[in-house]
Amino acid sequence: MSHDSLLFNIHDLVLVLAASQYVMLAILLLVTRRKGDISVCLLAAMLLITAVQELDTLFIWSNTLRQAVLNWHPNLLFLGSFSYWLQGPLLYGFVASVLYKQRPIRKRYLLHLLPALIAGVLLISHYYVLPRADKIAAMADLAFMWTPLMTHFMTVWHLSVLAYGGASLWLLWHYRRQLLERYANVEVSERRWLLWVVLGFMFIALWKLTVHLLGERVGEGLSNILGIASHYMAFIFVNALVFISIRYTHLFGGLGAEPTGGEPEPYKPEQVTRVSEYMHTDKPYLSADISLELLAKRLSLPERTLSRILNQHFGKNFFEFINSYRVEQTKHLLKEPDKQHWTMLQILAESGFTSKSTFNAIFKKQVGKTPSQYRKEQGL
């Protein structure tokens, strides 16, 4: 994946620009972050080590720069290699800290640093302890990069990013399930932008892994093109991150800790009756900000008990339970003759919904037709 012989060709400049933007975005996030915001710190750290990786790639694969570094100080090569193994853990830690604002940092998390330490020891024993002349000989024609050590090093690194990315996706899936158990308007608390951040890092890692595994099998020319394409992907991705950080970092709030206290006591028929009567008389579902926590307080019930009543007695999670009442309220409004001049936005707002897409999807799922179709069938 060697670059052209010019000191900085256009492909190298793209790599330098991407690294510069990663650094500038990290600094911007740190300067503007709220006090104690661990999410921003983790994202900034991830951006900084990604910048180090981009520069490390430039120094190794650019023939002219590599020769210059070898002549000046060969130990400067691979100085960023330790950071490769931090990208996955930092990505997972960032996702977890955004989703769960009260998630504690435990000492056992330090075990995620072990691969970086092992990689450092291996590089010291196989490269840094060599005499200067041997280092130059090993890297002058990139022979060291094709040794079993470095081949496995690069393969496992990319796989680790994909593994942590997969764990982050699972965390996002689990988080959404919790939202459905605790909120009625999940679009307010969803972190869909976070999904694209994870997928972006995973896609670039997968691309680089594919290029690495194909290697000489596809010929030097095609291999170089595929490798250079990853630089442009990094450049596009960091610009997307700039947009995301500007638009969404104010959402780094996260979900509070899950209700604790062990296994809840079995609920009583009186508690079920209390829930049903309150829903019909006070109509809390008309409030857009209703949540499991808020409803439990109003009913003087533990959150876990209320959650169990909804799941076991009514057979619904909180999201389904609240929105079933909202659908009934919508049907009632659509049948009212004096509401025929109301727009669908007015109808959904008066029913407790906050999103038109969620409103249409839930109504069609429960009724089998869209709100507009339902209104037409009323013949009013």
Rank of each mutant, 00 (worst) to 15 (best):
327 V>P: 02
66 R>Q: 12
220 E>T: 12
370 T>C: 10
284 P>D: 09
70 L>C: 04
242 V>I: 14
324 S>W: 09
313 H>K: 14
113 L>W: 13
228 I>C: 02
188 V>D: 13
195 L>D: 11
155 T>V: 14
48 L>Q: 00
334 L>C: 08
285 Y>D: 01
149 L>M: 04
234 A>F: 04
191 R>N: 12
342 W>E: 12
276 S>Y: 13
223 S>K: 00
177 R>D: 15
326 R>N: 06
38 I>N: 05
299 L>R: 01
329 Q>I: 04
252 F>C: 02
315 G>Y: 07
18 A>W: 01
229 A>H: 05
219 G>V: 07
264 P>G: 12
157 W>T: 06
201 F>V: 09
82 F>L: 15
316 K>V: 02
380 L>G: 13
177 R>W: 14
202 M>W: 09
83 S>D: 06
305 T>F: 07
201 F>M: 11
27 I>P: 00
340 Q>I: 11
371 P>A: 10
92 Y>S: 09
125 S>R: 10
144 F>K: 09
92 Y>I: 08
237 F>N: 09
174 H>Q: 13
16 V>C: 10
268 K>M: 14
78 F>P: 08
35 K>Q: 15
301 L>F: 13
234 A>L: 08
26 A>V: 04
20 S>M: 09
235 F>W: 08
12 D>Q: 04
64 T>Q: 09
324 S>K: 08
205 A>Q: 06
164 Y>N: 00
253 G>D: 11
352 G>F: 04
127 Y>M: 02
175 Y>I: 05
353 F>G: 12
370 T>G: 10
39 S>G: 11
63 N>W: 00
285 Y>G: 01
256 G>M: 09
126 H>C: 08
297 K>C: 11
178 Q>C: 03
188 V>F: 12
255 L>A: 10
157 W>E: 05
70 L>A: 03
40 V>M: 05
226 L>Y: 07
63 N>T: 11
254 G>P: 03
36 G>F: 07
373 Q>E: 13
341 H>Y: 03
212 H>E: 03
71 N>M: 08
72 W>L: 14
240 A>Q: 12
167 A>D: 00
112 H>I: 02
307 S>A: 15
235 F>Q: 01
378 Q>L: 12
133 A>E: 15
244 I>V: 14
11 H>D: 10
282 D>P: 00
372 S>L: 14
256 G>A: 13
2 S>R: 12
257 A>N: 09
310 L>V: 07
74 P>R: 02
230 S>F: 00
173 W>R: 15
286 L>C: 05
335 K>F: 12
42 L>P: 03
82 F>V: 15
349 A>P: 04
108 R>K: 15
302 P>L: 02
196 W>N: 07
135 K>F: 01
213 L>A: 07
143 A>Q: 05
120 G>A: 06
103 R>I: 12
269 P>D: 13
272 V>C: 01
219 G>M: 04
162 L>I: 03
222 L>P: 03
215 G>L: 03
242 V>K: 04
229 A>P: 04
223 S>V: 00
380 L>N: 10
